[in-house]
Design a binder for these strands. Structure first.
Length: 270
DNA sequence: ATTGACTCCTGATGGC
DNA sequence: TGCCATCAGGAGTCAA
């Protein structure tokens, strides 16, 4: 479910409640996530949370010694509870603070992750080989152009590949390709340098606007207050199959690309 | 090295 | 009401 804007929204929501706070204990009700929640997470007990960061769609909670990696998968969400509340269905993990606040991880589909790292977090296997942050200076047309040479993979899959660039998921990939006028099936290696300029601009623009709206809620995304995001009303193509293209008026198409639904305008995107 | 298919899991929705 | 098929904001893993 959550892409970069939704994870960023979650981070901004939880950070003020967690930063510089001490962990009282971690309760694991159901360790069966994407990987089993390790018993090591109890090492957080008694430690202060020294920083919270986002890397792609991963949330990093750094402690004095080690840290937690949290990924929301398709259906995960984090909530801040100011006072104790009985757990509900799929509330798999709680991080209880000594001041009584609780960070609660809920994930119906259990594709998310809740992991412990002993040493430097960025050297963790899951993070080590990730591509640049799309909203950083490293993410440029030149970079995408160079990485894409001689590659036949569809441009939509290419920009959704976290080893190329992090954080761009199924919604924002469709949106950015529409904004840049690029057909989602076009081979990444057959996109010109100039059109990569437009694509980089589109990716940054759509992600920044989505963050401002608190992310996209299509079905079940909620922020750390339990509120939805409001970017869905600004989507140009995603989930609009059969509707009129806002740009040219012809019909938005839906096609499965790399086992994911993709939306595009066959006239505007080439 | 790249690629594409498969997999994990629960819940919502729609057709019959 | 029930039953079944299909689909869903991710991404690691495997085989070719």
């Amino acid at each position: 479910m959550p892409e970069l804007p939704e994870v960023e929204t979650t981070l901004r929501g939880i950070e003020p409640h967690l930063l510089n706070q001490r962990v009282a204990r971690i309760i694991v009700r159901d360790p069966r996530l994407r990987w089993p929640v390790p018993t090591d997470v109890s090492k957080a007990k008694g430690q202060t949370i020294t920083s919270l960061e986002r890397r792609g769609k991963y949330l990093l909670l750094k402690l004095q010694q080690g840290g937690l990696i949290i990924h929301l998968g398709m259906s995960g969400s984090l909530r801040i509870l100011q006072e104790p509340r009985p757990p509900e269905k799929h509330d798999h993990v709680d991080v209880e603070l000594q001041n009584g606040v609780c960070l609660r991880f809920n994930d119906p589909r259990r594709f998310g992750a809740f992991l412990w790292v002993d040493g430097e977090m960025q050297s963790h296997e899951l993070l080590r080989n990730l591509g640049p942050e799309p909203l950083s200076g490293e993410f440029t047309a030149g970079y995408l152009y160079q990485r894409s040479r001689n590659r036949s993979v569809a441009i939509k899959n290419f920009i959704m590949n976290g080893h190329i660039v992090v954080g761009v998921g199924n919604i924002y990939a469709s949106e950015a390709l529409f904004m840049a006028g690029i057909h989602p099936l076009r081979a990444a290696g057959r996109v010109s340098r100039q059109r990569y300029e437009g694509l980089v601009e589109a990716i940054c623009d759509v992600l920044e606007r989505a963050i401002r709206r608190g992310g996209t809620t299509l079905r079940d995304f909620v922020n750390s207050d339990g509120a939805p995001g409001y970017f869905a009303r600004e989507l140009l193509v995603y989930d609009r199959a059969g509707s009129d293209c806002f740009q040219c008026g012809c019909t938005i198409k839906q096609k499965t690309i790399g086992q994911r639904s993709s939306y595009y305008c066959p006239a505007c995107q080439r």
